[in-house]
Computed example of a mutant assay.
Amino acid sequence: MLQFTFLGTSSGVPSLTRNVSGLAVRHSKTKDWILIDAGEGTQHRIQMTNLSLQNLKAICITHVHGDHCYGLLGLLASAGMNGRKEALTLIAPKEIQTWLQSSIELTALFLAYPIHFIDVSEIRDKIEINPELFISAHALHHRVASYAFAIEVIHQQKKLNVDALNALSIPKGKLWGDLQHGQDIEWNGEILQSQDFVEVTTQQVKAIVSGDNDQPELLHQACENADMLIHESTYTQETLEKVGKSPMHSSAKMVAAFAESVKLANLILTHFSPRYHDTKGITLLEQEAKKFYTGHLFMAEDLKTFELNASGQLKVV
C-alpha cells in the first residue's frame, strides 16, 4: 500500500555512496507520491527512479537545515520547466516559505503552477492528499524546530452480497451497480437499502517518518498504531557520547530501544554520519540496534525501495 524509496541517507554532507536526506513515499495503488525532505541533489536521485514530478502531490520538509532542504528550489524549478501545471502542496516550517519567496524574487524564478503552502507548526488534523492518502505532523526535539510526518493509507473495499441478490432474483446490471455505489433501489414495489447488500472492509497502514530528533520518545503517541518507523540514526551510542549533546541527534541504541518499548513491528534506520558509510560502519550501527530491538530492522540505502503491504509487513522490493 505504501512504497518508500530512499533518495538520500547521509547526514550533513553527501558522500560517494550516499546523498543527503530525501525520501519518496508512493501510494502503491496510484502514481501519487510524496517527497519528504529535499537535500541538495535530490532531483538527480529522482531521475534514477521511475517517479515523475508530474505525479508529485506534496513535499514535506522536516526542518530548515540545509541537508534537508537545499535541493528544494532546483526541484521546483525543474518541475515547472518540465511542464507541470497542477498545484503542489508544500508542508514545511514557515521559514521555508520565506526563503522560497525571496529566492523566487532574487533569481527571477517563474513557476507555472501554484504552491499551496501549509505551515507545519499549525497542523492539527490529518491533511488529505487524495481520498486514501493522509498526512499528519508531530513535533520533535532538535537544534531548530523539527517534525515527523505520519503517512496513512485508508483503503475501503465494497463487495456485493451476491447470494442475497440472487435470492431475490435481482438481475445483474444497473441495479447491482447502484447498490454497490451506495444507492437504494426499488424492486418489486419494495425499497432495498444499499447497506443491506454491501459489505465494506477497510485496510489501513501507517508509517512514521521522522526528521532530526534526539528524543525518540516524543513519538510514543504517534507510534501507538503505526506499522513502521523511519528514524535518523546518526551515530553509535559511543560516538554520540563523545560528540556530546550539541548536535541533538539520535544513536542506533536510542532509536532501537524506543522502537522496542512501543512494540513497533518494523524499523528503518537512516541519516548516517559519513564516518559510517562503509560496510563496516553500517554493520556497527546495525549490530548496536539489534541488541535493543527484536522486530524487523532494516538499514536504509540510497535508491533502495521498501514496500509496506496491507497486512503491515515490510519488505525490500
Rank of each mutant, 00 (worst) to 15 (best):
T5F: 04
T5R: 02
F6W: 14
L7F: 10
L7I: 06
T9I: 05
L16R: 14
A24N: 05
H27W: 13
D32A: 01
D32L: 00
Q43A: 07
I46V: 14
L51R: 09
S52E: 01
K57Y: 01
T62C: 10
T62Y: 03
T62R: 07
T62V: 05
L73I: 14
R84E: 10
A87E: 11
L88G: 01
T89C: 00
L90H: 03
E95C: 02
T98Y: 11
L100D: 00
H116F: 14
N130E: 09
A137F: 02
H141M: 08
R143Q: 10
E152C: 05
L160A: 08
L160D: 04
N161L: 03
L165F: 08
A167L: 08
S169Q: 09
K172Q: 09
W176C: 03
Q180Y: 01
G182Y: 12
E186T: 09
G189S: 07
E190K: 15
D196F: 10
T201I: 12
T201L: 11
T202G: 11
Q203E: 15
A207M: 06
D214P: 14
L218I: 13
H231F: 04
E241I: 07
V243K: 08
G244T: 12
K245D: 15
M248H: 02
H249P: 00
K263G: 00
I268R: 01
S273G: 04
S273Y: 11
I282C: 06
Q287C: 05
A289K: 05
K290N: 14
K291L: 15
F292E: 12
T294L: 02
T294K: 10
L303M: 12
K304R: 10
F306T: 02
E307N: 11
A310R: 08
V317E: 09
V317A: 09
